[in-house]
Design a protein around this nucleic acid. Structure first.
Lengths: 247, 247
DNA sequence: AATCTGTATTTTGTATACAATCTTGGACTA
DNA sequence: TAGTCCAAGATTGTATACAAAATACAGATT
């Protein structure tokens, strides 16, 4: 029962982040290749397909139906998102990030998201900022109400980051962050683990960030966001070190 | 004669930048799809295929030979690089950037390249920095020798930026800058025009940047690079305004 | 004249077949 | 035992054919 609830919340979180990376046309009659590529994406992000696992065209045909042509296209789409790595004549594998590569990704993410925060402070409308404050108020209430429901906090965390990125009003920036980097971060679930550890601290950091934005203090907002993500990077590295020691 | 020389230099420049974006496997037996995708890329960057032009699979078959399957794959590769925009059932067109989109791209580029410069100041080896200084010395000599050969300066400009990006030792950063953003910047040739206008000023800015890196002053290096690119952005906007007025 | 509509054409999406290449497993050798 | 080589099997790259969708154009209508 409790697990079932958590799974629902987990799906909610996935949905929110999926909306962040809403690069799929979502047309009325989606192509088979599109359907398969979105299914494959969630399968990889959820860990049903583990890093390093081979993804052959035949396998996808058996799993999703259809012929090899659309499967091939789906694989190529995921290669473009850096979720699969394709080697000519040899096939595709789920990307398997080394620690160094994950650090590289976080390094870029820190830079781009703090930039997004700076731009958001300059460009968000007053209405959008008010909605931001409302969102944080809701988070605070839910945290005070149920200490254990860290999933809500995680969803809120993602939602806030999402709004700030959109608030930058820079579509290319949004595309790079949500369409490329976040998939990989999600996939390793590190973000999940880390944010669970410090829900209240994260909320306070968020509050300061939104305060800075409300004051239109772009420099401060950028600095605070930079620290906020760098903290989560340090948590991530600590987690990796622990996992390394265990293995 | 003079034009032929310039064309050669232009090709040299293209080659240098192509190396920057060396994301193609370049295997011994390249796939037809790979060959077509690289050819298509240079065709678009050179302007042989103009923004907004349709790129049908049949057209590629007639131009490059083979069947539709590899052409489809080549089109998808260029879609991943944001050089083509594909609409389901409707086909692909060469991307046509609005002024706002180009500003977005430059905004991200400023952030990422100044970041790369900061990291380069921290991570480049002394040998690499010495090579950087040698490169600048060569540029200075060639500028003093032949004032008119601005193409050399452009190639040198790109070469320097390339080395700094590599010097960040962050593969993901390199990939995003060279594999995605630069193609688009190149395509519009704005970079070309702007750097032609101020070869000496650019050289001086480069010298200060490299000085900061040699002093391992990462903050200063980042700041200088940020200003350097922001200047070129301002030049770009000015050029666009002029073109707007002319049209 | 401009707009709408329906048909014909073109183009893409998908399925299937064949050729080229890689992977896997085992036998063989040093 | 470790490494190499080779052949069978599996997988991808490419070609061709058909179905579905969008585009283009001609004709009708207001």
């Amino acid at each position: 029962m409790k697990y079932a609830l958590n799974r629902n919340i987990f799906n909610l979180v996935l949905k929110i982040v999926d909306n962040m990376a809403d690069d799929a046309p979502m047309s009325e009659t989606p192509t088979l290749a599109e359907k398969v590529s979105t299914e494959l994406t969630t399968a990889i992000v959820r860990g049903e397909l583990k890093p390093g696992a081979r993804v052959s065209e035949q396998m996808l045909v058996e799993k999703y139906g259809g012929s090899r042509a659309p499967m091939r296209e789906a694989i190529q789409k995921l290669e473009a998102r850096h979720l699969l790595i394709r080697i000519p004549h040899a096939g595709a594998r789920v990307v398997s990030l080394t620690l160094a590569e994950l650090r590289d990704i976080y390094e870029v993410r820190v830079e781009l998201e703090s930039m997004a925060c700076r731009l958001a402070a300059e460009r968000m409308t007053d209405v959008e900022i008010a909605e931001l404050q409302q969102l944080l108020q809701n988070h605070e209430d839910s945290i005070k109400a149920e200490q254990g429901q860290s999933y809500y906090q995680k969803a809120g965390d993602l939602d806030l980051h999402y709004r700030l990125i959109r608030g930058s009003k820079n579509d290319r920036l949004h595309q790079m962050l949500c369409g490329e980097l976040y998939h990989l971060v999600r996939m390793y679930r590190y973000q999940t683990s880390t944010s669970e550890k410090r829900p209240l601290q994260a909320l306070q950091e968020h509050q300061r960030i939104v305060e800075a934005i409300a004051a239109r203090d772009a420099e401060l907002a950028e600095l605070l966001m930079r620290r906020h993500i760098q903290t989560s990077l340090r948590n991530l590295e600590q987690l990796l070190a622990e996992e390394e020691g265990r293995a």
